[in-house]
């Protein structure tokens, strides 16, 4: 069966209208995207929709979601997710978050462990680990950043980033409509992640609160977030497992969709 595209839906929340990509049937699986704002038309989610009711809410400021002005820190993000859960009638779905979305998933799972049935964290942000700094995502030339996000330099994302940088070098103004999503995503990310940079100092001391069966996935070639972060999540969350994916960079959702879908399916269905 060939994968079906997810449908583009809207729900209301306290901060405004929220865009939700949704498709498939079965157990609810919530996908929380990274700072790249990926969700629409990602083969990963389309494939998972074969086995799950895949629900991918766009965080305020990303895609068509409103409400960025109402979000000031990661606590606001966690409370916003509670609203999303209520609006969608979710009790304790499987939650699968990557990078920024992994951090948000961990914030929710530490504060409201009963709201998370099972948890997959892929190259999650959220921690500060001395000696293992997270790479800079703000203010870098697109070509340079893209190389920290992907193991494979021929990935279309990297090629597109190279083209954007080339335009800057040639002093060609890129069309605003091309820049808008990137400007918007980075601004929305900055609201929660500028300082402290991509982490919540309190989170590490709360990870023992997570009660869901947890899988932590680390891209072996993640050049943005060092392995020590995945290790710490796995060590602090009771019973968590850590899996390394060879040949995968930071944005594994885009780079290794089939492998990741396999890991998620196995972890979520093996529960209980």
């Amino acid at each position: 069966m060939s994968p079906k595209p997810l449908s583009d839906e809207r729900i209301s929340s306290a901060v405004g209208k929220i865009q939700v990509w949704r498709g498939g049937q079965g157990e609810a699986l919530v996908y929380l995207h990274s700072a790249a704002g990926e969700a629409a038309a990602t083969p990963l989610l389309e494939e998972l929709a074969d086995s799950f009711d895949v629900i991918a809410p766009m965080f305020p400021g990303f895609g068509e979601s409103e409400g960025m002005d109402e979000i000031d820190d990661i606590e606001d993000a966690a409370f916003h997710l509670l609203d999303v859960w209520d609006q969608l009638g979710l009790a304790a779905p499987a939650v699968f978050g990557t990078s920024l979305g992994g951090w948000m998933a961990a914030e929710l799972a530490t504060r409201n462990p009963e709201k998370v049935g099972s948890l997959v964290l892929v190259n999650p942000a959220g921690l500060y680990i001395e000696g293992a700094p997270v790479g800079e995502i703000f203010g870098r030339p697109p070509n340079e950043l893209a190389r920290d996000l992907f193991a494979d330099e021929s990935h279309p994302f990297v090629v597109a980033a190279d083209q954007m940088s080339e335009m800057a070098n040639l002093k060609v103004e890129p069309p605003f409509e091309l820049m808008r999503p990137m400007l918007q995503s980075l601004a929305a990310t900055a609201k929660v992640a500028w300082n402290p940079y991509l982490h919540n100092p309190k989170l590490v001391r709360r990870l023992h609160r997570v009660s869901a069966p947890t899988l932590v996935v680390h891209g072996a070639q993640d050049r943005l977030i060092p392995r020590a972060h995945a290790e710490t999540y796995a060590a602090r969350i009771p019973g968590a497992r850590l899996v390394d994916v060879p040949g995968a960079g930071h944005l594994m959702s885009l780079e290794k969709p089939a492998e990741l879908a396999g890991l998620v399916r196995e972890h979520v269905t093996a529960r209980g």
Binding site: F138, G139, K171, E173, R180, L183, L186, A187, A188
Partner: peptide, 26 residues
Amino acid sequence: NVSPPGYTTLRSYESMLKGFNTFAIN
């Protein structure tokens, strides 16, 4: 000329984009 995220609103960014390439650095 760094423009950190969220420092300029999108409507102003779009309005100012026209002048960017005349920046003296060029």
